[in-house]
Design a protein around this nucleic acid. Structure first.
Lengths: 110, 110
DNA sequence: CTAGAATTTAGATATTTAGCTAAATAACGA
DNA sequence: TCGTTATTTAGCTAAATATCTAAATTCTAG
């Protein structure tokens, strides 16, 4: 999981994932969306691969990258659940011995 | 949002947030859970404060840290929604050629 | 006011990271 | 085979990060 969050820490990599949400794209196609060199993009792809967030498939001379949505989903939901955030039940974790209630945010779910 | 993901990239900081989910704790109390020095922990707290994920309140000679769950929630849900993960309807878009000509929104990042 | 406790700031170092250019690899087509 | 295209690997630099020890800050008690 640490690898996933590490990968998500960089804006370029997050945007790559967003692009891949639409459809698989080659390394070159993805690179066109960013103002950095191809080798730099290649390094970003390597980090995303390392985190198992994308999958590479050689197609001729190109490499087609594809989002592994389930991995992203597992990491995000898994972490969110630790805090009662998201699809799961929204549990009031804020009401523990807090001196002053300064923000009663609600209506997330449930 | 970038600051939040940057903050979440470190395991120590993620664990601090988890601890604070249970109840507010002082810097010293939090530090006891980790094998690093107080100044190092203080730096981690600064990153979390910078990302607006925690709030500091001086209590006597101590500093009580408190999780700002809504900020974490907004970041996590906001990003998840970009991928159709979580609260919304999860549609199976994992298979390759989905390619909806739906003009997907992007650039809501950073 | 002085001592002590909790925390942060300062200053230093080692590691990691993001970026670059140039070169290597791989797959194709002529 | 040769040249072209797509991508990665190598090698480098600059900046950011995580860590430490020592010193400064802030607050409370006595």
């Amino acid at each position: 999981m640490s690898a996933v969050f590490k990968a998500l820490a960089d804006p370029t990599r997050r945007k790559v994932l967003e692009l891949l949400r639409q459809r698989p794209m080659t390394a070159g196609e993805l690179s066109e969306h960013f103002p950095v060199s191809r080798p730099t993009m290649s390094a970003h792809f390597a980090v995303l691969r390392e985190a198992d967030l994308i999958e590479a498939n050689k197609i001729g001379t190109s490499i087609l990258y594809q989002l592994k949505l389930s991995v992203l989903e597992d990491a995000l939901l898994g972490f969110s659940r630790l805090f009662g955030i998201g699809t799961g039940e929204r549990r009031a974790a804020e009401s523990a011995g807090v001196a002053r209630p300064e923000e009663t945010r609600e209506g997330a779910d449930e």
